[in-house]
Nucleic acid binder design. Structure first.
Length: 802
DNA sequence: ATCTATCCGTGC
DNA sequence: CACGGATAGATT
């Protein structure tokens, strides 16, 4: 007997193991590892992933696989094994790991249906009201009609009805109607004579067909010949043509890109690419850290490394952060590798993502450029993996499986014996430290390709501005420089580096701020609909006219949002044309590209935006970059706050002077003496690294120690505290001397969505020191997680501490 | 997650 | 003792 070992699509700990099913004879050809199947599970039907096929099971009474959902495996052996590794590394369920590797269309939908097995009139009158002659209807309708479970099961017993569980796949392939010729050309010409005088339209169609002998889209034909379906149908009846449904791709990047040739490399670039090519030639795995200043031509190094890989008929994965934000990047890859590129990012619809995925799956492309999850691209012969802007935190997934793309890249690089390149102008301390230790091979690009010096960065002390009596958000120096650029018809990028980028509401009389009812966070004001919104739970309420506390009417919105900066800009620079980019102006699909294109066409003088404008933009006419408040994220409750600030300042300054014209940067700050601001202004990464490493060493933070964050949340505040303390006790009993346990402490945001949140942190050197104790904690509280409303999450290498 | 069997309170 | 709601237990 053939047995399939299956991961069942039910994400609970009790089910988190392999279940055995008999493979019926007629399915033995298709059921292979990586194929999704529909299996009976208790009284229901659920989806499952086949992991293995064997001849033996320890169970004696096996159920049979119902049917298959795929005729080709959707996951390779490598990815199936990788899911096991992810499960162990991140402590997630195996299904969650498998789901994370596939586009959303592969998530099953479950429906319950009621089937009549007798005549309708056998049923009581109330039932006939809504069956309305239907033989099948959704179970849901019974419930909403208020029909009791007892009555339903009675009818099932009496064999009047049957309840069926259906599993629906959503992976719908888009098709289009095509017209195919069924006969020889000569035959068609003969037909022309036989057609009656009336059949003018049919004649036109045949003539068009004779001119175009490739497969034709029906729509196209109808448009070009200006006919309706009728004449085409009659031609089909005569057997001359056939209408067929063909698969098509929803192609979001249809634009034809002119192909570019590899650029000549500078000697620095050549030195950097050589060791990579060596590894490709020797089919060896190595981690490279490519540290290159902004504008040093990292992308060209990527492109030419990939080119080398493609010559060996191998594939390449390129990860880019928030790819929708850098359409310029996509264009560069598309215009070098043309149709060999698939693009995967969050801006695509589920259907579009599915289609891009299928191109990869069918090996119709060789290169995938995508956001985090593209690291799971189902290639089988990978020759290189590139992670651009490796310091970006978007490479860490925040929900289960809480994986870091860099670690997955390492896994896959080792499996395929290929190099992995991590590229950045401001590497993470973790990566740079590893490079210094020789764990990664360090590659450095110190010069800009255009031989232009890095833009001069000036620090402006905003406290002095205030002393001078300047109460605006723009320093005198910034105003002067902006005016100067407007006069010279050059462009300015202004970054409002602020978390939340919206404004909160405060009463000027009593100081009361409007807080969300469910979360410990200020509501933010949205001008677009004049409402207050909570960023965490999306609760909305009207902007109050008076203070809810003291009834004063002096209630106003505060804080420096981009909208507010935009207004201030308009006052200061009346003739300036401004483009504002923030969540409000870029939420619509394609809005991003449109705004950037407008700026690129020099239809505006100033581009004002949040951190989203710091990355990847390349406009030749930009000669001034302004940072409105450099210290905005410097004081966040996050041990990486300095590192993030340094990265951001470096990234955004790189937007200026990328081409012929020299650039300049103005950094406004209230803490000019801070080493992060100072060293960033000098582009002294090395200095910053050394300085920040001291801090990390002193406080036992990465890269000296690894971290695990345990989040505990419960609706009941007392319960949350109690459980946190119990876990802390349990852990401190079991953890050895080599690790540090911190907490429990309330999360920076104590309450979110009516849940009270506490956290514990462990600083450790080796996973073996924490794995067992954590497992014990999870086992101990498993019951409470299932029954009570306790939530417990474990996050290795956390990036988010709020 | 979701279904079934079982336990216990309420009401007649 | 029937009902309904909460709850333990199983799912190959």
């Amino acid at each position: 007997m053939k047995v399939a070992k299956v991961v069942v699509d039910v994400a609970v700990s009790a089910i988190d193991s392999l279940f055995d099913y008999e493979i019926p004879k007629q399915l033995q050809q298709v059921v292979k590892p990586g194929v999704r199947v529909i299996i009976p599970f208790g009284p229901r039907k659920v989806m499952g992933f086949v992991i293995e096929v064997t001849d033996f099971s320890h169970f004696d009474k096996l159920k049979k696989i119902d049917s298959v959902m795929d005729y080709e495996p959707v996951l390779t052996r490598e990815l199936l094994d990788l899911s096991k590794w992810l499960q162990q590394e991140t402590l997630c369920f195996r299904v969650s790991a498998l789901q994370a590797m596939l586009p959303a269309v592969f998530k099953a939908k479950y429906e319950k249906e009621v089937w009549l097995i007798t005549e309708e009139d056998q049923l009581p009158f109330e039932w006939q009201m809504f069956t309305q002659g239907r033989e099948v209807f959704p179970f849901e309708e019974l419930e909403s009609a208020g029909i009791k479970a007892k009555e339903i099961s009675k009818f099932v017993e009496e064999q009047l009805i049957e309840i069926k569980y259906v599993v629906k796949g959503k992976n719908k392939v888009k098709t289009d109607t095509y017209v195919e010729r069924m006969v020889e050309e000569v035959k068609l010409i003969e037909q022309l004579d036989e057609l009656g005088k009336q059949a003018k339209k049919q004649r036109n169609v045949i003539e068009y067909l004779l001119d175009h002998d490739k497969p034709l889209r029906l729509k196209e034909l109808m448009q070009h010949v200006d006919v309706t379906r009728a004449p085409i149908k009659s031609l089909e009846k005569k057997g001359l043509i056939k209408l067929v449904q063909k698969e098509i791709y929803r192609d979001p990047h249809q634009a034809n890109h002119e192909l570019t040739k590899p650029l000549p490399l500078t000697s620095e670039q050549q030195n950097v690419i050589n060791p990579v090519i060596d590894q490709i030639n020797q089919i060896k795995h190595e981690m490279f850290l490519l540290h290159g200043v902004t504008g040093s031509g990292k992308t060209e190094v990527y492109l030419q490394s990939i080119d080398r890989v493609l010559q060996d008929d191998k594939e390449a994965i390129v990860l880019v952060p928030e790819i929708a934000l850098t359409p310029q990047m996509v264009t560069r890859f598309k215009s070098r590798f043309g149709d060999d590129v698939a693009v995967l990012h969050s801006g695509l619809s589920t259907g579009e993502k599915y289609d891009e995925w299928r191109k990869i799956h069918r090996k119709e492309v060789k290169v995938v450029v995508g956001a985090r999850s593209a690291i799971f691209a189902p290639f089988e012969n990978i020759g290189i993996i590139i992670i651009d802007e490796e310091h970006e935190t978007t490479y860490k997934q925040e929900d289960y499986p809480k994986y870091h793309a860099r670690e997955v890249a390492k896994y896959r690089g080792k499996y395929h014996q290929c190099p992995v390149i991590l590229g950045s102008a401001t590497p993470t301390l973790e990566s740079y430290a590893r490079a210094q230790k020789g764990v990664y091979q360090l590659l450095e690009l110190t010069e800009r390709v255009n031989e232009q010096a890095l833009p001069d960065m000036k620090i402006i002390d905003m406290r002095k501005e205030l002393e001078k009596g300047n109460r605006t958000m723009f320093s005198d120096a910034l105003v002067e420089k902006i005016n100067d650029r407007i006069k010279r018809k050059e462009q300015v990028v202004l970054m409002l580096n602020r978390r939340g980028y919206s404004t909160f509401v405060m009463c000027r009389e009593c100081g009361e701020t409007v807080q969300c009812q469910h979360c410990d966070i200020s509501m933010t004001y949205h001008r677009t609909n004049h409402k207050l919104k909570c960023h965490y739970c999306n609760e909305e309420q009207a902007m109050p006219n008076q203070c809810p506390e003291c009834e004063s009417e002096a209630i106003r919105f505060f804080g420096t949002g981009t909208q507010k900066v935009e207004e201030a800009l308009k006052e200061h620079f009346e003739q300036a044309r401004i483009i504002r980019m923030d969540v409000d102006t870029t939420s619509r699909k394609g809005a991003h590209e449109r705004l950037l294109k407008k700026f690129g066409n020099q239809e505006a003088d100033i581009l004002l935006g949040t951190q989203m404008i710091a990355k990847g933009l390349d406009f030749e006419n930009v000669t001034l970059v302004g940072v409105i408040a450099a210290d905005a994220i410097l004081h966040l409750p996050d041990f990486r706050a300095s590192e993030k600030s340094f990265q951001l300042l470096t990234q955004v300054s790189g937007r200026a002077g990328r081409h012929e014209l020299p650039g300049e940067v103005i950094v406004q700050t209230y803490t000019p003496e801070h080493y992060t601001v100072k060293l960033a202004a000098q582009y002294d990464f090395e200095g910053f690294f050394k300085r920040e490493m001291q801090v990390r060493k002193r406080f036992l933070y990465p890269p000296y120690y690894f971290l695990v964050l345990i989040n505990i949340s419960h609706e009941n505040h007392v319960k949350a505290v109690e459980v946190s303390q119990k876990i802390a006790n349990l852990l401190s009993e079991q953890l050895g001397e080599t690790v540090q346990l911190m907490g429990p402490s309330p999360s920076p945001m104590l309450r979110i969505k009516d849940r009270f949140r506490y956290q514990l942190m462990i600083k450790y050197k080796s996973r073996t020191d924490v794995d067992k104790p954590l497992e014990n904690v999870l086992n101990t509280f498993q019951k409470e997680i299932n029954r009570e409303d306790l939530q417990l999450t474990v996050d290795f290498e956390p990036y988010y501490f709020m």
